[in-house]
Design a protein around this nucleic acid. Structure first.
Lengths: 208, 208
DNA sequence: GCTAACTTGTGAATCAATTCACAAGCTCCC
DNA sequence: GGGAGCTTGTGAATTGATTCACAAGTTAGC
């Protein structure tokens, strides 16, 4: 299959979000135009994005919302549960571990790791903080699909290297660090500093 | 000035991060090639990115690290302090309020808001949770530059509308919601669901 | 002062993403 | 069954981003 751009995948995700909302409101069909309006794009873009994967609509009518939801979930790989571990039980790691959105969307948080002995053993709901020492052993056993990296900058590359060596193929990185990983490992980064600086740039250079 | 792509601004931000680190290690000059290697891009890209704003290097030698840091901070609008408010004192809002990275990088968190009476009045360090009721009044008085939106999906659009009406021109949105705002307001979104689904897609479609 | 070794800055070329524009298909109504 | 009114799916055109490739500076050594 042709390589799909990252921006396309992000939009599919946005469409899915809006479709699910529409379904809750009881709607059953939708046009590319309506989908575009709410996704902040154009109808041609919506149709092109979907056309990479097949043809899901009916000319003259639009898309069946339940069918399109199902197709998008299939495309995005959301028809299965993904096992997630969180590395780092600091402010961000803790907030993420308690964040309901993960489980809701089929991402099961199996464990949280930290190397600070004071944090190891503490617990919220049914998730216990495990000792980072046992990361390799646990990964071999639990086979998590995705690791969320929420450690400080100084510890990020080493933690990533350990995760990769232990067999993790996908990392969601919250550290403000450009990670070096092999080509078969996929990394997505959420970098607060970068987002804030993007806003700073925009505010500084707006036309007046 | 020519419009600069978002991706370019993100890279400038990444260069700045790496330059600061290099400066801490006592280095004084760097080549576009080295900068590219650590930023995950190419030397031509680095030079092109910088060329939009001027010419900062010396042929044959590379870039002076302190000078380039200064220039990038100037370009990104980081030579001043930005006033930030956080809206929503849930898990994410709270974690953000306590996150040291803001202040470190010149983003001063003035206040946190929530509409839950149980949360209003609580305090960490020197930040108190204020009642969301007083948002408009406070904004008129404090003139924050950036609002971080950390409320649930259902409350996001309404909160954004209030912020915009009160005069906020930049929003960092953590809600899984596509916000509708006027053209003169800049929004950056951090959407966990989207990132996770991006990883899910990549894992599902890797070549084997 | 001259040569060798580097490295920048930038037009030109390539590659990628988005938008245009329209034929083709579907539904409804008469 | 036929026409009007929509809306998709998709090549072609356009716009935008990245990479190439090289002239023009700079430094260091002799």
């Amino acid at each position: 299959m042709k390589r799909i751009a990252d921006s396309t995948v992000r939009r599919l995700s946005a469409y899915l979000r809006f479709l699910e909302e529409s379904a809750e409101h009881g709607l059953t069909t939708i046009s590319s135009d309506e989908l575009a309006r709410r996704g902040g794009t154009t109808s041609a873009q919506v149709r092109k994005d979907l056309s990479f994967f097949g043809s899901f609509g009916k000319r003259g009518l639009g898309y069946s919302i339940p069918e399109l939801i199902s197709s998008l979930r299939e495309i995005l790989g959301l028809k299965r549960e993904w096992k997630v571990i969180i590395v780092g039980a600091g402010k961000i790691g803790t907030a993420l571990a308690r964040y309901a959105g993960f489980e809701q969307r089929g991402f099961h948080v199996m464990a949280v790791y930290d190397s600070d002995p004071l944090k190891v053993g503490s617990q919220w709901e049914d998730i216990v903080v495990r000792d980072a020492e046992s990361l390799e052993r646990d990964i071999a056993h639990d086979q998590p699909d995705i690791a969320v990296l929420a450690v400080p900058h100084g510890a990020a590359q080493e933690a990533a290297t350990r995760l990769v060596r232990a067999g993790v193929k996908a990392i969601l990185n919250f550290a403000p660090t450009q990670l070096a990983v092999p080509a078969d490992v996929v990394v997505r980064s959420v970098n607060m500093a970068m987002e804030l600086e993007g806003l700073s740039y925009a505010l500084s250079n707006r036309e007046r």
